[in-house]
Amino acid sequence: MTTLVVATLSAREVRRRWAALALVIALPFWFYLVRRDATGQSMRMLTLGIGWAISTLTLFVVNASRGVDPRLRLTGASVVSIIGGRLLAMTGVGVALAAGYWLLAWLDQDVLHPWAAALMMLVSAVVAAPLGSLIGALLPRELEGALALLSVVAVQMLADPAGLTAKLMPFWSAREIGTYAVDGGSAEMVLHGLAHAGLTWLICAGGTLAVFQWRLRLARYPEP
């Protein structure tokens, strides 16, 4: 039950940060708008924008909870329920954002495989939440975290998609699925993308959990 309560209240917190929420919603739109004339580029930029927006929002939510988490642990909550609840909420926000933008792209662009385009945006949103969470766990200050995310997205944007550097970046999966969605080709690209996304999710979620297990550990004292 704690997980659901944390998820519900985290989502409510995000909803109340309406200025940040408006910027998060708008960010992928600007990415999309500048390359609207080219379907492939606009879809890839849009997807990367969704990933960047959700990971940054998650980073801020994780940092804002820093003072509450130790007290929740002391009151009896497990680390899994705290971190899991927050990831659940931010993934939900990401999926909603991806769904909205998929509808826009479906109406506005001529995409070869619309279902794959939906999957591309979904993968980006689902990977973004634990990525933001992990950066927030490793870099406790918002500025440092935001700059780290900016670096990740910039490298992802500029690296040669066929090279090793791009494959080591967290949003390579969305790009791979996007190539199939827009240009067609082998369906194996979707499978590769999904495998990459799954592995990235596991690393980021597992890393977040490991950092917070250590940071929120309580000394176990014997009873008098």
């Binding site: 039950m1 704690t2 309560v5 944390v6 209240l9 409510r12 917190e13 109340r16 940060r17 804002a64 909870s65 003072g67 509450v68 007290r71 929740l72 642990r73 002391l74 009151t75 009896g76 909550a77």
Partner: peptide, 28 residues
């Protein structure tokens, strides 16, 4: 044990009742 820190320890965007719900859930 109940712990009350000198500052912080609350979530700025939540109301008092939401805090009660959150901490209550942690305590079952």
């Amino acid at each position: 044990v109940g712990f009350v820190p000198q500052d912080g320890g609350t979530a700025g965007w939540l109301t008092a009742e939401e805090h009660f719900t959150l901490f209550g859930a942690a305590a079952g």
